[in-house]
Computed example of a mutant assay.
Amino acid sequence: MAGPAVVDPERAAMPAVPNVPEELAQLPYAHLLQPHSGPLRADQRYDTVHFDGTEHGGAAGGAGFLECAFTGVHFDGAGLRRASFNEAWVHGSRLVATDLAESEWQDSAVLGSVLAGIAWYGCALRRVVLRQCKLESVNLRGATLRDVVFEDCLLRDVDFGEARMTEVAFPGSTLEEVRLGGAKLSKVDLRGAVRLGLADGHLGLRGAVISTHQLFELAPQFAQALGIVVKDG
């Protein structure tokens, strides 16, 4: 079975980074947004709602967010299991110890935000951009990621175990103690990563594209994973 493809980054073009609005006013639905107040409610549908500087810690499982914007929002211990985010825009927000398991994200962006201690396993991310975000102790086991970009992000202790990742890229991102055990990768481009630090799952890189430099850096871990003893003399 083929391993990760090794490509000279100077000879192969990096995947294009999607154009994502950086300011609230740039959103195509900005003029439709209505301010929100009060707690989130389970199974509630929110359409063109602006959550600004609010704090949420309650249970709102199954809630749906369509063309919603979140600016400076703090989710602390919130329960958003099986929630759906369609064309959502999250900026400068904090998500701490929040349950996003089995949630669905499509055509959405998360910018300049912190995600720490997040249960995000079993989720589905499609056409999602995370830019200048810090992800720490995030559980993405069994998740499905398609057309996802982690741009200029820090991923520390992020678990992609058993995840299915297709056309995922990490331009400018730093990966530390990332887990890929049992992951299924297809057209995953890691060449743009500033650092590629894996805690385990080196054989899970099968189906990824890495650079020659990254291959040399990972060589000791590949040898260990394959049970190869490297000894000189």
Rank of each mutant, 00 (worst) to 15 (best):
V7H: 05
D8A: 09
D8G: 04
D8R: 03
P18H: 05
V20Y: 07
P21V: 05
E22M: 08
E23Y: 14
E23P: 02
E23G: 01
L27S: 00
L27P: 01
L33R: 09
H36N: 06
G38W: 00
L40P: 11
D43E: 14
D43Y: 12
Y46G: 13
D47Y: 07
G64S: 14
G64K: 13
F65I: 05
F65M: 09
E67H: 14
C68Q: 03
G72P: 10
D76H: 15
G77F: 14
G77M: 10
A78N: 07
G79D: 09
L80V: 10
L80E: 03
A83F: 00
E87G: 06
L95F: 15
T98C: 08
D99S: 08
Q106M: 09
Q106W: 05
L111V: 00
S113T: 05
L115I: 00
I118S: 06
W120S: 06
G122N: 06
L130E: 02
K134F: 05
S137T: 09
N139G: 03
L145H: 04
L145V: 02
R146D: 11
D147G: 01
V148R: 06
V149N: 02
E151A: 14
L155G: 07
R156I: 13
D157V: 13
E162P: 00
M165R: 01
G182Q: 08
K184I: 00
S186V: 04
D189F: 09
L190M: 12
G197K: 11
G207F: 00
G207Q: 06
T212V: 12
L215H: 10
L215A: 03
A223M: 11
G227W: 07
V230L: 15
V230H: 08
